[in-house]
C-alpha cells in the first residue's frame, strides 16, 4: 500500500485557510454529526461536507476511491441491521422481515459516516502532516504528543524503505507466501527486524538531535496569520454548525 498525502497539493480557498480554523471546525462538525440522528440535519451535514469538498477542488476520482472503501464496511451493517431490529416490517425476503427501524438506523449510519469522512478529506487531509502537528501544538495538545506524532510521521517513510528492502531480500531468496508455518515465521522475523532497526535508529536519531542542539522543542518555520478569508470562513462555519444544531435539537421541522 502506498503511503501518500493524496490531497495536500492544491491552491484552493480550503488549502489556504488557517489550519487551526480547519481543524477546529472539523472537530466540532464531526462530533455534532456523530451525535445527530434526525434526517434533515444529516442531509444538511452531507450537503455542507460536499460543498467543502467542491470548494477544495480535489481530484474527484481519488476522493471517490476513499469513500468506496469506507462504504464497503458500511454495507456490512446493511446486511445485518434491517433484519435484527425489532419493529414494523417493511417487506419480507424469504423468512426474514426487513424492519423499518433497522433500515432507518442503517441509513443514518451511512449518511453520518459519509458526511464526517467527506468533511475530513476536505479539511484535514488537505493539510500537510507537519502543518497539522504544529497546528495541534497551538491547540492545547501536549508538546510531547506532538513531538511523538511528528517523529513517527518523519520516520514512516524511512521505515517503509527498510521494509521494502527486506521484502525484496526475501523475494530474491525465492520466498512465496502461503498458509504455512514457514510463511508466518518469515513475516514474524521480518517484522522483528523492522522493530530492531527502528529501535536502534531511534537512539541514533536522538543522539543526532542532541548534536544539533535539541532543547526539547520543535520550531515551525511558517507563521499562520489570520487573513480576511479566514474570518469570512469562520463566520460561515459557525453558521453551518448553528444550522445543524437547530435542525437536530429544535422543533422547527
Amino acid at each position: 500500500m502506498m503511503i501518500e498525502e493524496s490531497f495536500v497539493n492544491g491552491n484552493s480557498l480550503i488549502h489556504r485557510l488557517n489550519p487551526v480554523l480547519k481543524i477546529g471546525f472539523a472537530i466540532i462538525y464531526s462530533f455534532v454529526v456523530a451525535v445527530s440522528s434526525k434526517f434533515p440535519s444529516l442531509f444538511a451535514a452531507l450537503f455542507i461536507a460536499l460543498f467543502l469538498v467542491i470548494l477544495a477542488r480535489l481530484n474527484p476520482r481519488k476522493a471517490a476511491v476513499r469513500l468506496a472503501a469506507v462504504n464497503g464496511i458500511i454495507i456490512l451493517f446493511w446486511f445485518f441491521l434491517p433484519f435484527t431490529f425489532q419493529g414494523e416490517a417493511l417487506f419480507h425476503i424469504g423468512p426474514f422481515a426487513v424492519t423499518r427501524p433497522g433500515v432507518i438506523f442503517a441509513a443514518g449510519i451511512t449518511l453520518k459516516a459519509n458526511a464526517i469522512l467527506i468533511a475530513f478529506i476536505a479539511l484535514v487531509a488537505t493539510m500537510r502532516v507537519t502543518t497539522l502537528g504544529h497546528a495541534l501544538n497551538s491547540m492545547l495538545i501536549p508538546e510531547k504528543l506532538v513531538q511523538f506524532f511528528l517523529l513517527t510521521y518523519r520516520y514512516l517513510f524511512v521505515i517503509q524503505t527498510e521494509y521494502q528492502k527486506l521484502t525484496r531480500a526475501v523475494k530474491v531468496r525465492g520466498f512465496r507466501p502461503g498458509t504455512n508455518l514457514h510463511t508466518y515465521r518469515t513475516y514474524a522475523y521480518l517484522a522483528g527486524m523492522l522493530f530492531v532497526r527502528a529501535s536502534v535508529r531511534g537512539e541514533r536519531v536522538y543522539q543526532a538531535m542532541l548534536c544539533r542542539g535539541f532543547k526539547g522543542k520543535f520550531y515551525s518555520l511558517h507563521e499562520y496569520s489570520i487573513s480576511k478569508a479566514d474570518i469570512t470562513c469562520a463566520v460561515f462555519m459557525t453558521a453551518a454548525i448553528v444550522i445543524l444544531v437547530v435542525l437536530e435539537w429544535t422543533k422547527i421541522i
Binding site: 500500500m1 511523538f148 517523529l151 513517527t152 521494509y163 531511534g202
Partner: peptide, 21 residues
C-alpha cells in the same frame, strides 16, 4: 520520545503486512 516515535512508525509499517490465510 525519538526511539518510541521511530518504533511507532515501524508498527505502522508492520501493520501493512498482509499474511495469507
Amino acid at each position: 520520545i525519538p526511539r518510541a516515535g521511530v518504533l511507532s512508525a515501524s508498527f505502522f509499517i508492520a501493520s501493512l503486512i498482509h499474511v495469507p490465510i
